[in-house]
Design a binder for these strands. Structure first.
Lengths: 345, 345
DNA sequence: CTGAAAGCGCTAACAG
DNA sequence: CTGTTAGCGCTTTCAG
């Protein structure tokens, strides 16, 4: 601020009106006489006035910002959801704050602090918020200003926007079954994650419905990461009876799996078929191009943003608490799936 | 805010001191008597007080936030830089605002608006800010509160933190040359991008130094994207004389290239070697695992954050304007490069 | 339709 | 070491 800051009062002076009028020109221009309005806007332009948000927010008892809680900023999966969210708020006068919870949400009561004094609302992409944090948020009356997107916390009354994870898993299994696979393994996410449960459930349901064999060691614990895909590959390589197809809880896991399998001479899809989940941009360009369940991440983010906006603005169609908005998913068939090898059992 | 908000005054009352004392307890606790300090902190705890940042910021003539300008949020390359930046600011009382410039930086004077009233400082990962925007920023005295990271704007006095792009390109070419390649192509970034120039320059320098053949059509225009890698592949497939190796300006381009080449029966690295740039997490898990130039993105982000922090705080070692901090890069050799095929010229 | 005036909650002189 | 006090720049009654 090298140049002295232009206040609303300077504008008022230049326009020969009161500060109240300038303020009104900004918020409710239609309530001013044509003449006055023009004078004010001319003054605004000539003085180079910019509103001071700190002052406005203080006065209005709001912060003008929303907080996005991301489990892991360096995971490309989230960036497109962020893009969706960010796109919506860009059109509003809210600023978007982004915080990485690093898997282990704000240890101290930082979240509480933010919830109360730094932001008007929160979108959490992290479903692993500690119960006490949730309590605090709820207890502080911030509950109607927080929603979940993508992930969510079980048994919370907060609304959420999520992909149809169960259906996604079903689609994957059905696709593999349609190709002739019967021995299908699944690499899960971390045990405490809601997505893990939803996808595994869909997988199990469909497996049962189709009467496919169930072996315990075909459910392999992972954590959505590339590394866990690699580990799963090693597990599979040492199995006495290998599955002919693997449904992975994320594309990253699928990449880790395929890369390691390939390095060990197992060909995908000739020897083993792989289905991912997410359809990140890269999946189309993997070798082989990955068959996967597409999540509309941008749309999901945008929808979450709008939902929060509604609640903040006391919008008309304010959804009931606990509402769940489900975004459809779709199967994208590429080159990582094929009929099982003829000689396989 | 269901519960009435606790003000500094309420704390003062509870602790039987003045508001000034409470304020001091928060900012300079060492200047209070043991006794008073304890009383205040007890009161803070019992009342559940939280500072109101809008008020503090208004008073202190600051905003308590920094803005990160990202060319494209959905590009995984940036997310880890963000993580690095975000990690540093997490330790401070600055909030991190993230805005996607969508390649075409804030059309309206939104950036100016932000620069002046919503944030104390800016880190731009976008080197393609229109000149007029830069002018505005400079003109507003915001120049000493803005820096670049990763990308930068040519001929600007603003400091920047960047990878050693030229050296990275040299390393790539040297590696390929060491394997026996002489016919090396390069897929560039967009023409108006500073990284494009730096990397191409390094590439050309080294090619000259090593006395390698230069063909114009071996410099292929791209734009860092997967799609542009695919397009480049098609170009290469139709060349009368194909290069035996390709140095790509980004890992994404390399993926697009390899995936398309593979689909057309060209094997990497047996028929053609490929080197990327960035070393995004996935590169290690690609098929084949990608040989590439590693950028320490997290470190780069963190360093940029600290640089800005210094300038905001008027830190001791405030760097001179225009300073360039260079972060080293390194060659990571994996499986996408090999000696050229024996039969090739 | 417009103006005067009262703060929003906090910090920083300035006194004591 | 602590208290008093004057605003930071804005919006919003309440009058006119």
């Amino acid at each position: 601020m090298a140049l002295k800051t232009v206040r609303i009062q300077d504008v008022a002076q230049a326009a020969r009106v009161s500060t109240a009028t300038v303020s009104r020109a900004l918020s409710t221009p239609e309530k001013l006489s044509e003449e006055t309005r023009k004078a004010v806007f001319d003054a605004i332009r000539s003085t180079g006035y910019r509103v001071n948000h700190a002052a406005r927010n203080l006065r209005m008892q709001r912060t003008g910002a929303v907080l996005i809680l991301v489990p892991n900023l360096s995971n490309p999966f989230f960036s497109q959801i962020l893009a969706g969210i960010s796109g919506v708020f860009m059109e509003t006068d809210y600023s978007v704050l982004i915080a990485d919870t690093h898997g282990r949400a704000a240890d101290d009561n930082r979240l509480g602090d933010y919830a109360l004094t730094r932001v008007d609302g929160i979108i959490s992409l992290d479903g692993a918020l500690p119960a006490e944090t949730m309590q605090e948020v709820a207890g502080q009356g911030a509950a109607d200003r927080m929603i979940f997107a993508c992930e969510w916390v079980q048994d919370t009354p907060l609304p959420s926007v999520r992909s149809d994870n169960v259906e996604g898993a079903r689609l994957a299994i059905r696709h593999l079954h349609g190709l002739g696979h019967r021995n299908i393994a699944h690499i899960t996410g971390p045990e405490d994650n809601v997505l893990t449960h939803a996808r595994r459930q869909g997988m199990l349901e469909e497996r049962t419905r189709l009467n496919l064999p169930a072996r315990d060691d075909w459910i392999i614990r992972g954590d959505f990461s590339l590394e866990s895909g690699r580990e799963a590959a090693h597990r599979i390589l040492t199995m006495d009876q290998r599955p002919t197809a693997v449904f992975c809880c994320s594309d990253q896991v699928a990449f880790g799996l395929i890369s390691t399998l390939t390095a060990h001479g197992v060909r995908v899809p000739q020897d083993l078929s792989v289905v991912g989940f997410d359809d990140i941009e890269l999946s189309e360009y993997y070798v082989p191009a990955l068959t996967t369940i597409r999540q509309f991440r941008r749309k999901l983010g945008a929808r979450a943003a709008r939902l929060l906006l509604d609640r903040l603005g006391g919008g008309p169609a304010t959804p009931v608490p606990g509402e769940v908005l489900t975004v459809e998913v779709e199967l994208v068939i590429r080159d990582s799936t094929a009929p099982p090898p003829p000689l396989a059992p």
